[in-house]
């Protein structure tokens, strides 16, 4: 094993896969990131966004916070959060909101509060950055992504799941996952799964995506889709 005296660098669970597939790495904000791949770019991309922060908000007063951010406070909605810490806010359930940062940052989430979040102990904030691995599926049109995922998701809700500003917890090849799409027209759908099944899910996505021309891409493609690595 290589010995090192360097400061600890965080790495994605897909790091070894990325290395094996010719990723060019960079170090940003304490992470070793796959910035690009040598392979030819495709119209349907799979990008690892695991390093982007994720925060969960739980507590008895989550519903009050939901009313602040969601016009229709039913679980299954996603709103965009702007400002110093931009991201997607997902209404996962009556008991949990999940904030998915769309800007890679090293620090600054320890005291992060959502706009309108009261100074109150009945809402607990959990750093879930290392709990979930995140992937973005990016197509030239969202229907490309829908065709890729169609038939493979154990959806318990209507087909409008991939409509803008929606999220759902579902199953993918035996693994619970969260799907989310920002409230805009960009053809981007995110999937978040537990850290320990990241490689399994990544492999499955590439397997089913082979027929659709799905290709892995690095962080350098994210800016045009509203994510900043």
């Amino acid at each position: 094993m290589k010995m090192t005296d360097e400061a600890p660098l965080a790495r994605s669970p897909l790091h070894v896969w990325q290395e094996a597939h010719g990723a060019r790495f960079g170090e940003r904000h304490g992470w070793r990131l796959a910035e690009s791949f040598a392979a030819q770019r495709s119209d349907l991309l799979l990008v690892d966004v695991t390093p982007f922060a994720k925060l969960a908000f739980t507590g008895y007063e989550i519903l009050d916070l939901s009313h602040t951010h969601f016009p229709d406070p039913q679980p299954g909605r996603v709103v965009a959060v702007s400002g110093a810490k931009p991201g997607w806010l997902c209404h996962q359930s009556d008991e949990q909101l999940l904030f998915l940062s769309t800007r890679l940052e090293a620090e600054g989430f320890a005291s992060f509060r959502l706009p309108g979040q009261p100074e109150h102990k009945r809402i607990t904030t959990w750093d879930m950055t290392s709990a979930y691995a995140g992937f973005l599926l990016i197509g030239s049109d969202v229907s490309d992504v829908a065709r890729l995922l169609g038939g493979h998701l154990n959806l318990g809700s209507s087909p409008s799941i991939l409509s803008p500003g929606s999220c759902v917890e579902t199953g993918f090849y035996g693994v619970p996952c969260l799907l989310a799409r920002a409230p805009d027209d960009r053809p981007v759908v995110g999937m978040w799964v537990a850290w320990d099944v990241a490689e399994y899910v990544w492999d499955r996505l590439l397997q089913i995506g082979a027929a659709h021309g799905l290709a892995a891409a690095g962080g350098d493609v994210l800016r045009e889709f509203g994510w900043q690595a």
């Binding site: 600890p8 660098l9 965080a10 790495r11 669970p13 992470w31 695991t50 390093p51 290392s130 320990d196």
Partner: peptide
């Protein structure tokens, strides 16, 4: 954190 386990 899992992300830092390898380094540690």
């Amino acid at each position: 954190p899992s992300a830092l386990a390898w380094s540690l």
